[in-house]
C-alpha cells in the first residue's frame, strides 16, 4: 500500500507541468478513478482545503490522500512520491544550467524568455482577478497590494498578512452587524 501510494504520486508528479490546477485531472484519474482512494466529494473537499492553505495543490492532495489511506507514513510516502520527480529533474537541469548560462545563444534565448515569463505572471494575476468576488473591499485590496508591491514599501509576507487581518476584521464586523440586526 505504501509503495502503491508512493508510485502513484510519483507518476502524478512526473507528468504535471506547471503545477497547480494542471494536476487536478491527473490526480482524479489516478487516485480516484483507478485506485478509488477517495470519493469525488472528498476530492472536491481536498481542493477547497488546498486552496485555503499554503503550498502547491499537488503536495496538499498527496499529503491528504496519503494520510487518509495509511496515516502519517502514508502521507509521507505520497508526498515524497509527488516531490521526487521534480527534485531529480531540477538537480539535473541545475548542473546543465550552470555550464550553459554563459553561452551566447542561451543568453540570447533568455532575452526573449524573460519577456514571456513577465507576460505569464501578469496573465496569472489577471486570471485570478476574474475569479474573485465583485466587492468593494476586494477592489481596494487589489489596488493596495499592487501599490505596496510596486514601490516595495513592505516585505511581501507583511502585505499578505495585512490582507488576511483586514479580511478577518471585515468578516467579524459583518457578523456583528447581522447579529445586532436580528437581536
Amino acid at each position: 500500500m505504501l509503495r502503491d501510494l508512493f508510485f502513484t504520486f510519483f507518476k502524478i508528479g512526473l507528468f504535471t507541468f506547471g503545477g497547480g490546477y494542471a494536476m487536478i485531472p491527473l490526480i482524479q484519474r489516478e487516485a480516484i478513478e483507478k485506485k478509488k482512494w477517495c470519493s469525488v466529494d472528498e476530492f472536491l473537499n481536498i481542493i477547497a482545503i488546498a486552496e485555503s492553505t499554503p503550498g502547491p495543490i499537488a503536495v496538499n492532495s498527496a499529503t491528504f490522500i496519503g494520510y487518509k489511506q495509511k496515516g502519517v507514513l502514508g502521507a509521507f510516502f505520497a508526498t515524497l512520491g509527488v516531490v521526487l520527480p521534480s527534485f531529480v529533474i531540477i538537480l539535473l537541469i541545475s548542473l546543465f544550467l550552470v555550464q550553459f548560462k554563459d553561452n551566447t545563444i542561451v543568453a540570447n534565448a533568455f532575452q526573449g524568455v524573460r519577456i514571456a515569463v513577465a507576460i505569464l505572471v501578469l496573465g496569472a494575476g489577471l486570471k485570478l482577478m476574474r475569479k474573485l468576488k465583485k466587492h468593494w473591499l476586494t477592489i481596494v485590496l487589489i489596488i493596495a497590494g499592487f501599490i505596496l508591491m510596486l514601490f516595495h514599501w513592505l516585505p511581501t509576507i507583511f502585505v499578505i498578512l495585512i490582507g488576511g487581518i483586514i479580511g478577518i476584521m471585515y468578516q467579524t464586523i459583518v457578523t456583528w452587524i447581522e447579529v445586532a440586526k436580528r437581536g
Binding site: R114, V117, L122, G125, L128, L137, I143, I168, Q171, T172
Partner: peptide, 25 residues
C-alpha cells in the same frame, strides 16, 4: 475571512510583479 483578504492582496502582488518583470525584461 482570512482568505477573502489574502486572495485580492495576492492578485495585486502578482500584477505588480508582472509589471516589474516586464519592465526589467
Amino acid at each position: 475571512g482570512f482568505l477573502s483578504g489574502v486572495k485580492p492582496m495576492v492578485v495585486g502582488i502578482l500584477v505588480a510583479v508582472g509589471v516589474g518583470l516586464l519592465c526589467r525584461s
